[in-house]
Design a protein around this nucleic acid. Sequence first.
RNA 1: GCGGGAGUAGCUCAGUUGGUAGAGCAUUAGCCUUCCAAGCUAAGGGUCGCGGAUUCGAGUUCCGUCUCCCGCUCCA
Length: 517
Amino acid sequence: MAQDDLFKKLIAHAKEYGYIFPSSEIYDGLSAVYDYGQYGSELKNNIKQYWWDSMVKMNENIVGIDAAIFMHPETWKASGHLAAFNDPLIDNKDSKKRYRADELIEDYISKYQQKIDKEVTKGRKKFGDDFDEKQFLETNPNVRRNQKKIDEINGRLLKALENDDLNEIKQIILDYEIADPVSGSKNWTDVRQFNLMFETRLGSLAEGANKIYLRPETAQGIFVNYLNVQKTGRMKLPFGIAQIGKAFRNEIVARQFIFRMREFEQMEMQYFVKPGTEKEWFEHWKNLRIKWHEAMGLPKEKYRLHEHDKLAHYANAAYDIEFEFPFGFKELEGIHSRTDFDLSKHQEFSGKKIQYYDPESGESFVPYVVETSIGLDRTFLSILTAAYCEEEVPKENGDVDTRVVLKIPPALAPIKLSVLPLVKKDGLPEKAREIMEKLKIDFMCQYDEKDSIGKRYRRQDAIGTPYCITIDHQTLEDNTVTIRDRDSMEQERIQINELARIVDEKVSMKKLLRMVF
RNA sequence: GCGGGAGUAGCUCAGUUGGUAGAGCAUUAGCCUUCCAAGCUAAGGGUCGCGGAUUCGAGUUCCGUCUCCCGCUCCA
């Protein structure tokens, strides 16, 4: 089956079986916003728990917090988001391409710079060892002409950016007849501002109310709480702060189902270390995070590591863990060595000293940070895509039947166990209810007596329930039930009083944690 | 924003030159059922995305509009 078709089927299946619904669907939906349904929210919670436990429970030097989505606006000046998330964009009407208007102008400027470089090369050849670059740049008429042009355009651009003057940016493009690098067309739309951060106002709508933002990443909530946690938790380096929470980005194009949403959830852990040891910890977390993914049991070949060659301004090393989605390998988790960029910036902007006193060396310093940041919704999607199977099952009459089954890792499955009386009479439903009552304290269980047993098995397959237990006539005689495995469809007969123990062994989250640690 | 595709029941879709909105599955109730979906009976569920135009009459024609999906530009 083509990957594209598979993806469409998966989306339809996710909706039909209560995993993911389009947001506000009765009002025609909202672009790139989705709601998690009755099973989706269970799966999501299980993923969160697996992550949280593997951070906070399994590492005594990692603690968790839950910071607010609203933060002081200065936060985003310090982090650089306010500047970096504001892009003036322009469309070419002929080529239909969209560009960042400032980059378009900068590209144009770089052509003049290239001319200057060429002159310098020529000059160097001509004068040999006597070549004085500084003097050459000041006196050569060609260089001076080009440099003047650069200064002129650059000056206008910087001023326009500073004043948020979009009309001026457009005017620069028109004045210098800057053309679309692809088509050569000069047929441009107006310049529009895209702010990737959602804005709102704190307090009333009254004038003078402060503009605040929905956080575009959760990490800053950790950085601004660094001192609080370090002091109140008596934390010593190295230590980590973990957080799960929503973040918001007003993406120009948000698509591919829940892969890129405007509202999404991140699971982040910032690990604070002594400067100089960050590379070592970076390796440590990279390896541990890979093990975390592998323990879930999704196919290993679906994962791949990608090293950033172009590093963000704050990082000195960065890896992505990528997953092969139906639309290709895409980022699932980022492991970044963020140096002391964030804490230093907050120190600078807040005026509060963010230092760690190291009793061993007697020195104070700003700690370095190694970050692991994983998309919860993306992890959800990776599990769902890997789980979705259409199997051919031979029927008794020789026909072939298609079985749709979600092979979700049992520890993460929304419903662990369904309890099914073979028939709806002879006291079997009563016995099944009795068993159900005992088990529901241990597991998410579901009871079903409607329709034939085969049909009920298929319904459970479709939502990914790993085990079905069936109460039949023999149950009444010897207190045994059959337990059916979702993936192999094989059955085993076991004692009722063994049920909780046997199922727990199979579906417990402890199993995953033991594989990682 | 531009280009392409699509909006009819929970799902998959049919609906003729314009003439009373349909099927299968699903759902609910009842009957029947000794282990891998689709036995029997009945019921519920749709202002055909929305608005306008043409017409005696529009799911169907025309215009507008909204939404979703795919592609492109952006992405810490």
